[in-house]
Every structure is written in C-alpha cells, then in structure tokens.
Write a protein that binds this DNA or RNA. Structure first.
Length: 596
RNA sequence: GGUCUCGUAGCUCAGCUGGAUAGAGCAACUGCCUUCUAAGCAGUAGGUCUUUGGUUCGAAUCCAAACGGGAUCACCA
C-alpha cells in the first residue's frame, strides 16, 4: 500500500535525522496496530536499541514527535514499550477511499503477459464425483480466477482419465448384469449408472477372491487370479487393440458419464477451456523417453525397461517405460506436459492434485528438468489435503464417500429450509426462490471447502449440515443483500454514489475507518492469494470485510443521518463494500444475491 | 524403516517474511428488532499454542529431538 510506504519513508528520514541511522524505507516494516491501542500502524523499535544506544520507549517518543511534526499523514502517536503506534489523519483515509471509487480496476492486476495453465478436476470416468472432487474443482476454478485477477492469461484444463483397468471393470460388470440398461431406462444420471456397475464389479470380485482363498489360494494370488480380474484385463487388452465391440461399449458408457459430469459441472459452476482425454494421450511420452536415452540422462536395464536415476535429487530410481515398451503413469504425464506446452506455451502449469501424489510430481518435474525442457521449471503441483470424514478417509469402493450430487441437493434443501424458517422468502417468485436456494447452497458449500488452507487436510461431518451463520458463505452473501437493499433505497431517493457528494465530509467514525482499511487492502490480498495459490486468503478477507461492514451497519445509521455529506459518504462506502464483496466472492466462484 | 507433512479453545479453523495480554466461528451463557434485512451486532466464559531443548531483546511462528496423526516409498493411476 502506498500509505504504508510513505510512512516507512518518513520513519527512514526520522531515523536519519534524529539518530544518524541509514535504513532504507523498504527495510522498515509496519504492522497493523492491535485493536486495544489507538492507531492504525505500529512500528517496533526494539531492533534499533543497540545501534542507537537508547531505550525502546525513548526511541519511540523521539520518532513519534518527529513524525507528528514532519509527516503529514500522521495525526497522533502513542508509545507502549517498544511499540510506536501511529494514528493516521482522517483525510488520508478519505482520500484513499475516493481513489478507490474512481479506479474501477482496483484489485485487477495489470496484464503480466504470463500464461498460466490450471489443470483441475481430472476425473476417472468409472464413477460419479464425490466430496473430494468438489474440493478439487472449487480450488481449481478459484485459483484460475485468482490468476486472472493477477493479470495472467489463464487456460483451464481438464485431463479426463477415460481409459484403463478401472473403466473396464465398470464395462465388464455392465456386460454381465446390465441388460442394456441406459440412463433413460434406469432414470439414473449417466455417471451414477456407470458407478453402480463399478460397485457391482467390486462386490463380485471380492466374492471371487474369498472363494479362491477358501479353496486354499494365497490372498495376493487370488487377487490376480480372480476370474473377473482376468476378464477385465483381457478387456483392456482388446480395447488397446481397437476391438470394435469393446470400443463401442466404452464409447457408449463414456458418453453417459460425460453427460452426467457436464450436468454436475454446470450445477456447481465450474468450466474448462480445454479437455484432454487420456485415451488420446496415453501413448505420448515415449518419444521423451527416447530423447532422454539419447541424451544419456536415462538408462536401460538388461530386460529393456527404461529408468531414470534421481538419487542426486533426493529421490529414487524411477521406471519410465516397461520392458515391453508400454507406458506407465509418469510416461503419460511427460507426454501431456509437452502437449500442453505446445497448445499453450505456459510460464506456469498448475496441477490441482491431492497431496497423495506429492512424490509423483517431484519426479515429473525432476525428470523434465533432466531433459532440459523449458517448461519444467513452471510446473507447480498445487497439492491439497484430503477431505476426511469423522470415520476417516473416504473410499470409493467401500461406499464411504459423500456423493457430490447428493451433497449439493442436500445443501439446496437446507438453504430452502433455513430461508423459509426465517420467513425471508416473501415477494420471491418460485423461480427466484429456486435461484436463491441454489446460490446460497453453493455459497455455503464452496466457502466451507475454500476457507481452509488448501495444503491442509480438513474434516467434513455429514451429520452436521454446513452452517449458514458466522464465518460462512451465506454470512458474506447476506452482507451483500443488505447493502443491495440500501442501494435500492438510495436510488429511489435519487442519491448518487459519487465522490463529489461528500467533498466536505469529516468526522470519520472508527467503524467507517475500519471498513476503508479493509477496502484498501483488497488488491494486496489478491496478490497474496495468487502468490500462495490460496483461495482461503480471499475467503478470510471477504469475511473480515463483511464483518467490518456489519459492525458499521449496526452502529451507524445511514438514512437517519441529517448531514447529507455523511449520508452520501456512507452510501458510497456501502456501494464500495458491495463491489469488493462481489469481486472477492466471484474469485471463489460464489455468487452474491441482491436479496435474501 | 527412509522421505515428506500436520499437531493452536470442547469442535472446525485464522494467525504474512519472529513482536504487545495468541484470534474468529460453532456449541454454552447475557444483552440488543415501533429506526436502513436479527442469516446481524455487542458482551461473558473457554488456551501449559503436543513436549523438551536451542537461536533471539522477544518464538505459536525459525532450528533440533521426542511423542502422536497422515501421506508416500508399485513395471496402479
């Protein structure tokens, strides 16, 4: 913030004038003053006692006196031990506020010219999305929006994992039990229908294993020898050979799944600029392996398999290509990295993938560096923690997952109940009410999943529905709805929202000042969130802003104010809060209602 | 076992590059709607920041060790 820098400069000058000390303004750090003391910024004098040779209070007093006389921004000061608390002139805050009003791009970074690809979602096509995917999707979408706000060109990508043994499992069970069931005949959403057969496969497979074990076979052996496993593997082989029947079935079932996913994506409000399909990319990467062999950074074992030695990077030896020449996971990712780069020459490629794959991405980056790829350095694994249930980790096959579609439906129902209980639905058409419930439900859910630091694991308790009070999405949305009501009334009264209407306003209330401080911080918060890839930073900001506004709202009347200048200022302040609430929430992928 | 991570109020989480008496929300308890939306506001209570050392004027924050969770160490993806 410019203001902080100006104060730092003044302190730098003061240190020089009073004590002959040369400290660059950039080295001087200010912190927000704790609320129990008067002031907005605090300068800590402890670090200077040695070089100056005086006590911390003495230094604080001297600096305070100097600043009050020489720095126009400083209204007053107080010294508590080694802390110099600085109060800022009201007019300075008002001036900052006026600047915000006239700058519609505050918080929009100037174009960086940098290309950032954000890959997220990347689902398997054998089962529907669950709560863990929701965290992934919301994170990915939000990070992409945050990157845009930081001035980058963003490409949102979805790498669909549409082939492999897991898909064949669903296909096989469908062939056995399906009786040509379709989403239409079953009334099931496509992804749920396919997921049903994945579960059926697993159930039958387990029974087969148990049966084999009972016959005296070793369990590990039984897992490999169970008839359905063998059939699934055979099916995968046929798929790779282009067997018409298998490929047709695969196509049919994937079509169902995509229709289901599209519906979910639309419902939760995420989208993609580009889709990649693993069925089209899984053979890529072999050329990169060949390239590495030629460059001598990879090596071949006697059986013909290709490896890379990453022990110098603190990692292990890693297989890159099987002896039979087929790809493994890392081979594919080497290929898709190149493909992505050719499609969109990125400076940075963000992979929103759970932290269980930390090792994999370390390896990927190290391998691409060894190949000397220009895009290796830009690879960033946005590693997020799992969502735990009170019972522990979610497991698809064991049915201990919270289904995404169901959860969203429940949230919408909760939103409806809450709204009806509060009697807040008068004057809404049925369509508007439906829209509101969806907005609130998604607001609550997204905020809940995004307010936590992405790196951390988090807990979700399905028994306790997500709150609509306190530090929640609806709380922030409510603040916006409140302000909207005020702005409607102001418009009716013909009061314009413009800086000129409060030129002579003074007597800034503390609650008003606190709101301005929050507003001014917005652009820094957006930068911080971008630097950390952390929507949680935005969520916490939106909450703090809303809280500061609500305090103001409660303490100070707007329309009962007789001073027109003050009234106009407060309306303008409200409008500005609404704007930043809307913008910050939109960075989280959350909409804000006009009424609720 | 190796590597990586996490451990803050009963619960869920904030605490930026070290700074004042560690903050919110939920749950509990008190107040505040004839005044702009009470999904709100104000307040009370709740803590050996897992433990022990170290660095420092100063540590929840940095370093080390221990204890306790979790992830990973596949010719699965």
């Amino acid at each position: 913030m410019q203001l902080q820098y100006a104060i730092s400069q003044s302190i730098s000058q003061a240190l020089h004038a009073l004590f002959g000390l040369s400290v660059d303004a950039s080295q001087i750090s200010l912190q927000p003053t704790r609320k129990e003391f008067a002031g907005s910024f605090t300068f800590v004098t402890f670090p200077y006692t040695k070089s100056i040779g005086k006590g911390p209070e003495q230094i604080g007093e001297a600096l305070g006196t100097y600043l009050k006389e020489n720095a126009p921004e400083i209204k007053n000061y107080n010294v508590v031990k080694g802390f110099l608390n600085l109060e800022i002139q009201e007019e300075v805050w008002l001036q900052l506020f006026r600047e915000l009003m006239t700058n519609p791009n505050h918080g929009q970074g100037t174009s960086s010219g940098r290309n950032v690809m954000v890959e997220y979602s990347s689902p398997n096509t054998n089962k529907p999305l669950h709560l863990g995917h929701l965290r992934n999707n919301f994170l990915g979408y939000s990070v992409a929006e945050i990157m845009k706000a930081n001035g980058h060109n963003v490409m949102k990508a979805n790498l669909v994992n549409d082939r492999g043994i897991h898909i064949c499992k669903s296909m096989l069970a469908y062939e056995k039990f399906g009786h040509n069931e379709t989403p239409e005949t079953s009334g099931l959403k496509g992804d749920h229908l396919v997921g049903k057969y994945y579960v059926l496969f697993d159930r039958a497979y387990k029974e087969q294993i148990d049966a084999l074990v009972e016959q005296g076979m070793d369990r590990e052996e039984a897992k490999k020898k169970a008839p359905w496993m063998l059939e699934a593997q055979e099916m995968l082989l046929k798929w790779e050979q282009g067997d018409e029947h298998v490929v047709n079935l695969w196509r049919l079932m994937n079509t169902w799944v995509y229709a289901g996913f599209d519906q979910t994506y639309r419902n939760i409000g995420v989208d993609f600029d580009k889709y990649y399909y693993e069925s089209e990319t899984y053979t890529l990467g072999k050329e990169r392996v060949e390239e590495g062999l030629q460059k001598g950074v990879f090596f071949k074992k006697p059986d013909g398999s290709v490896w890379v030695d990453l022990t110098d990077d603190g990692l292990d030896e890693k297989l890159l290509l099987r002896a039979d020449g087929t790809s493994v996971y890392i081979t594919q990712d080497m290929g898709t990295a190149e493909l992505k780069y050719n499609d969109f020459p990125y400076d940075q490629s963000v992979y929103v993938v759970a932290d269980e794959q930390n090792y994999h991405f370390q390896v990927l980056k190290a391998v691409l560096k060894k190949l000397g790829k220009p895009y290796a350095e830009g690879i960033y694994h946005l590693s997020y923690g799992m969502v735990d249930l009170p019972s522990g980790k979610m497991k698809s096959r064991e049915g201990t997952v919270v289904d995404a579609d169901e959860l969203v439906a429940e949230m919408i129902d909760t939103a409806r109940q809450q709204t009806e209980e509060l009697g807040k639905i008068e004057g809404f058409t049925p369509e508007e009410a439906t829209q509101l419930y969806h907005t609130l439900a998604m607001g609550a859910l997204k905020y809940f999943l995004l307010k936590v630091d992405p790196k951390k694991r988090m807990l979700f308790n399905p028994q306790e529905s997500i709150d609509f009070r306190g530090n929640t999405g609806p709380f922030v949305q409510y603040t916006h709805a409140r302000i909207s009501a005020i702005l409607r009334k102001a418009a009716e009264m013909g009061i314009a929202v413009e800086a000129a209407s409060f030129d002579n306003f003074e007597n800034l209330h503390e609650a008003e000042q606190d709101v301005i401080i929050q507003l001014v911080a917005y652009s820094e918060v957006v930068q911080e969130a971008g630097k950390l890839y952390a929507p949680s930073v935005i969520a916490n900001y939106a909450y703090e802003l809303a809280k500061a506004y609500n305090r103001f709202y409660q303490e100070i009347s707007i329309f009962n104010e007789t001073d027109e200048q003050a009234r106009s200022f407060r309306i303008a302040l409200s409008a500005m809060v609404a704007r930043f609430v809307r913008e910050s929430m939109s960075l989280l992928g959350i909409e804000v209602p006009e009424r609720m």
